[in-house]
Every structure is written in C-alpha cells, then in structure tokens.
C-alpha cells in the first residue's frame, strides 16, 4: 500500500513540476512541445517490454499483444523524437 502511495505521489509531483515548466514555453514552440511530449508518452513501450519479463510461461496470445504494444510504443517514441528534431532544426536556421 505504501508503494501505491509513492506512485501516486510521483504522479502529482511530476504533474505539478510539468505545469510550471510548460507554462513558460512560448506559443511559437507549442507544436514542437506537443510533438516532444507525444513522443514521451511512447514510454508505454516499456510496459510492452515488461509483458515479456518474469516467468517464461506466457501464452502466444499475450506474446502477440505484447509485440503489438512494443511496436506501437516504439513507433510513437522514435518517430516523435525524430520529427521534433527535424522541426527544431527549421527553427534554428536564423535565430
């Protein structure tokens, strides 16, 4: 139960710190910001990976679902950071 409280605490603290940091992002960077945070939500790929941890006895069904989750999460994450970088390169040219 203490563990759960810690996890909820982690959520609240990072949420509040996130609000403070993101309120300072200028409107001109809102698209790269959303694209970057979108890539961050691809961390769910870790959840997919962890479906393959622990006891070896997992059904083929779980393995198939785990593979889809990993592929979807990796698509989200890698593509998101890559396209954000491309966008920010455009911004850098003149300032």
């Amino acid at each position: 139960m203490v563990d759960i409280l810690v996890l909820v605490g982690v959520f609240l603290v990072t949420f509040l710190v996130g609000v403070v940091l993101i309120l300072k992002v200028p409107p001109r960077l809102h698209t790269p910001l959303m694209s970057m945070t979108n890539a961050v939500s691809g961390i769910t790929v870790l959840g997919g990976l962890l479906l393959f941890s622990g006891e070896v006895e997992t059904s083929w069904c779980i393995q198939a679902l785990g593979a889809i989750a990993i592929a979807a999460g990796a698509f989200n994450m890698l593509g998101g950071f890559a396209v954000t970088d491309r966008m920010l390169k455009l911004f850098k040219t003149r300032d």
Partner: peptide, 17 residues
C-alpha cells in the same frame, strides 16, 4: 506495471496536453 518513470513521463504529458 509499478514503474515510477512511466508514471512521471505520463504525468508530464498530461500536464502539457
């Protein structure tokens, strides 16, 4: 999945969104 880093990342994305 009891992983604090996943929670932290999700919370930041939620704040931004």
């Amino acid at each position: 999945v009891q992983n604090r880093m996943v929670i932290a990342c999700g919370a930041t994305v939620a704040a931004s969104g």
